[in-house]
Nucleic acid binder design. Structure first.
Lengths: 349, 349
DNA sequence: TTGTATGCGTTATCAG
DNA sequence: CTGATAACGCATACAA
């Protein structure tokens, strides 16, 4: 029982604790920072005093003095075209939080619009403000200026995903970064598909580009020519547009691989509307399992990744850079293909 | 062109700005805190100097001195039963961010597991730490201790959703809080349905309870007896369990209203598996439009809310409590029923 | 209109 | 092992 919670909880400072336990403020500080030099008895007395007074160190004073904010920033940049979509699954967030919370770190969220100009400003400010000790990045662009900028600013950062080719930057991703797409292709080839198309996000983003390239490679190793490889955008609308276009070709594909589940689901919806049967006429594969992909009719065959783990590893890597003594988390789980009803034997035509 | 970005960006402090513009530190402070008393010319000089030096006030020092952290906390409590589900759509997050970011506030995210014991601790710490000036709450429980606790701690807070009945607490929700369910019932009644069941989240949560009650009221005003009202849990699995049970009754309903879209989608999936036609045999209605609800087959009839707006209003209310001079945002948009293919005329049996 | 002095709560240093 | 004391960077009353 902590008595009197609301007893005009003034600002109980370290001085109060020191006074109550009859020691100096420095002694209290030492105890609560794990720095030795305090006798066991004294430490117990100090801890008790702090407990009684309900004292917690002021994060502001701590930050000022130690220039550690004990917070990491998560920076999401939304696409202008699709302001409603945050390129981040809640699971990643959860993973990050799980790691940092128990180490006393907070997660400061930032959502920037996709405007490189004020983004520059924003990052500068972030570094100058020192509200965070490091940042987590997502959704890298091919010509992303953030990597150089952050390096210049000296702000520790870890990218969730892969950096642009040729650039070395701390990041967390599967190896190879295109993992998952190869399995999708293999699965379709085994089902007898020869005419396969890929419809994914814009080539200006690293992740979609990598996936498109992985598709091309996988097709090549299967000895196949892709029917189409479309890099367009990550929205449902764009997926439909691209699907329409691809299916209107003289030799339409019998299977479609998408860069994301929402794209795939939207396309399924559209295809059904045109009277095509899935998977009778055309097979559909998604990417990055959405919980609801399972409930589609037919269920969507897709690639699932351990998103919570992605978040955890990213957080761990960042904290390691910040100097915390954490074990290397090792590689990420390999993405897995989940076969459901949206893929079937190739139509015989 | 800001010259020399990486010129060992030491700690450029307010003193540097003062020196460069030939004034005292106090003058600089005054300019950047909107307190008058500085001549236009001097102010311009000061601002230019700050610009040149890339100076931003240290958030730590500011927080220490002014005891304002310029951050708000968003507290999510995940259900133990379903650790992968954050009870929060990204849109709400986006709405919050849009409001607070341009006012210089940061969003500090916290995810607690559903354990009331350490939750208490966590809130105490949150208040003591003063890392946030106020908090946003979600997912209220009927016997939620947080409201009293936060009041005791003097930590400003706004609940997204409605507080437990009988309790007054700053919050943002539709009026009435059950809005949307009534429309669903009316829609089904107009289609000729008489046997309607409701399957929603647990009664221990405020929101699900309110929705269940709204369902009962709407049924009563239509002169109907509900076939079933199940309060179970918000997961897909639980929705399926409940659906199975409800449909096995001697007189199964011809229409099902669910407390959430994921529940509805999972149930649709299950119902199809049992050979039932949607909406031929049974109509299905969801709640809180998920973008993908549209792509189900048939499309899911559901209630959509302006989630971004919910987030914005919650943030605005909190900032108003914190003393910012913002206009009252007024009421939320009323939820709208979106009729898609999952609802149709009542089966004739 | 501008400058000076002081304190916010903590940690680091260094002498006891 | 302990206790002063000086920063950390800023905001504010008050003096000029």
């Amino acid at each position: 029982m902590t008595q009197q919670v609301s007893r005009s909880e003034k600002n109980v400072t370290i001085a109060d604790v020191a006074a109550r336990s009859g020691v100096s403020r420095a002694a209290v500080s030492k105890v609560f920072n794990g720095r030795g030099g305090i006798s066991v008895a004294t430490e117990a007395r100090i801890r008790k005093a702090a407990e009684d007074l309900g004292w917690t160190r002021s994060s502001a004073a701590f930050a000022l003095r130690s220039s550690k904010s004990m917070a990491v920033g998560l920076i999401l940049n939304t696409a202008v075209a699709d302001p409603d979509a945050i390129p981040m699954t809640p699971q990643v967030l959860l993973g990050i939080e799980q790691v940092i919370a128990k180490l006393g770190y907070g997660l400061l969220l930032h959502v920037f619009s996709d405007n490189p100009e004020d983004e520059n400003q924003a990052y500068r400010r972030l570094a100058a403000d020192k509200r965070v000790d490091g940042v987590l990045l997502t959704n890298a662009r091919i010509d992303d200026a953030r990597f150089k900028l952050l390096a210049d600013l000296g702000l520790p950062a870890v990218l969730i995903g892969s950096p642009p080719p040729g650039l070395s930057f701390p990041h967390v991703d599967n190896t190879p970064p295109g993992a998952g797409v190869d399995e999708s292709v293999r699965h379709l080839v085994e089902l007898g598909h020869r005419k396969i198309a890929y419809i994914g996000g814009p080539n200006s983003r690293v992740q979609p580009k990598i996936r498109a390239e992985a598709f091309l490679e996988s097709m090549a190793s299967a000895g196949l020519q892709p029917t189409a490889t479309v890099s367009i955008g990550s929205t449902a609308e764009m997926a439909v547009t691209a699907t329409k276009q691809v299916m209107c070709q003289p030799e339409p594909p019998t299977a479609l691989i998408f860069g994301g589940d929402v794209m795939a689901m939207a396309a399924m919806h559209y295809l059904r509307g045109t009277g095509l049967d899935i998977p009778g006429d055309v097979s559909v594969v998604g990417f990055d399992d959405q919980p609801v992909a399972e409930y589609m009719n037919p269920g969507l065959t897709t690639v699932t990744r351990n998103s919570t783990q992605r978040g955890m590893h990213a957080a761990i890597q960042l904290l390691r850079i910040l100097g915390l003594d954490l074990p290397d988390p090792g590689p990420l789980d390999r993405p897995r293909l989940i076969v459901r009803g949206s893929t079937g034997p190739a139509a015989d035509r």
